[in-house]
Design a protein around this nucleic acid. Structure first.
Lengths: 256, 256
DNA sequence: ATGCATTTGTTCGTATGTATG
DNA sequence: GCATACATACGAACAAATGCA
């Protein structure tokens, strides 16, 4: 019988709490982790009401203070919202990022009935390192436009993206990005009326301090990292984007 | 006595380090080149730990900065991975998990010219918790077949998957899974000749202790977590799978 | 839970060799 | 010859992350 089988353990009769004591992991962490898995695991509607602290307390066989400590953690990470006198609720800003050929940031956020906004961080022209060059199909060291931006939904950070464009093809793009509010607009100014997602590669890693600060996540919570390659109508690569999303607020969804 | 006399004093030991000074090639380049040859030359296992910077510094008779400059180069080119507080490691080759309607574990591994194998962990019939029930489109508490399996490539763990199937539709599946080597075979035995991936949701979280042990990853390295829903030819849901992949060994790739 | 040893990351300062004008 | 700029190399100290007892 192992801790992560909590739901199963509950079905049976025995060690109902599913927690392991005296093994170096604080109980509240185990509870927070369990709940996080269950919530991020899906099947829950944003806004849905969670069991009361007393019910959790009974389920996990711990004091209510311990449950509160776990909920506090989840609340801090934005996964649940606790309201005095009413109860705890699954946060409404769980964002499913649906990977589709024409996904745009603003549309993604609006689809969740939230207000998109962006905060430009850095804009400049640099030499491509190996990763960027490979993504764009350029030789290493080729000049690229680099644009870093924090994406927000209702004012909360949901995406930190670093975009790269081949400077040779878009000499005027730096100025356009500086003047426009959206990347689509800037690309339109330099002659790209339409583009689509060619490939998305997803992995995960721990945040760097700056990333954690910008995305407002604890440093011990992983980021989803997506590398995207966008191409124009002719199939020529126009952008390589490295996007970082906070978990578990954001999920990436692929549905053909 | 000034520090810069050191190189002269070391002239005798220079031969032992295998480096040539004052000959137009920077020391750090020579070191990088030496290590690159040694690593590419084979005999080293991906993920293996390299000597510490201090040890290299002693071996090559140079300052730690010089070693760091060389390691930085190798890190940039993707040959090694450096982790603060832990050390430097030979980079693992990346397994790109391509999400496609008919992706099967064995085919995925073979495509990377590696030998797939599997290690069954747990097989049983349980009541579905909320997440599983939602994934399968069943009421919570419905009976399901649960099968947990560790997937390996060339003997190294690359995937920890928990599969769930509706027991009502497949009463004989538990026995079939116990007898077959692959899930496809077991499904074929109970009448499912073909199935396809309907949706994949990806997120990331830190591993539970058991997961870290099974996948042979440090407890501080995040896992990619994918939830998959598989359907048969008629579009009926036959499986809900929760798969955990170790980063950075595995990437999930969406390419339409 | 706490402290300690190990290891990498960062920032000072200093000195040398080479190329440039 | 001289001034300047730059990459290289060394040394010391400290910060930060990790692992272990």
């Amino acid at each position: 019988m192992t801790p992560q089988d909590a739901p199963i353990a509950r079905a049976g009769a025995g060690a109902a709490s599913g927690l392991s004591r005296q093994e170096g992991v604080a109980l509240w962490r185990q509870i927070a982790h369990t709940l996080e898995s269950e919530i991020a695991g899906g099947g829950h509607v944003p806004g849905e009401r969670l069991p009361t602290e007393a019910q959790f307390s009974a389920r996990f066989q711990v004091n209510r203070h311990t449950v509160r400590r776990a909920l506090e953690e989840l609340s801090r990470s934005g996964l649940v919202r606790v309201e005095q006198g009413r109860g705890s609720f699954i946060a409404e800003d769980l964002l499913a990022y649906r990977v589709q050929p024409r996904t745009r940031f603003n549309e993604w956020i609006r689809r969740h009935n939230m207000e998109p906004s962006g905060q430009p961080l850095e804009l400049g022209e640099i030499a491509a390192d190996d990763g960027v060059a490979a993504g764009l199909g350029l030789p290493a060291g080729a000049p690229v436009v680099r644009y870093e931006r924090l994406g927000l939904a209702d004012g909360r950070p949901v995406c930190l993206a670093t975009h790269h464009f081949p400077l040779a093809r878009f000499p005027a793009l730096t100025a356009a990005l500086g003047a426009c509010r959206s990347i689509s607009d800037a690309l339109a100014q330099v002659g790209v009326s339409d583009y689509r997602r060619q490939v998305t590669r997803v992995t995960a890693r721990m945040p760097q301090p700056r990333e954690a600060d910008l995305l407002r996540v604890p440093r011990n919570r992983p980021l989803l990292v997506a590398e995207n390659v966008n191409v124009d109508q002719d199939g020529a690569v126009i952008e390589f984007c490295l996007a970082r999303y906070p978990t578990p607020r954001v999920q990436i969804v692929f549905e053909p």
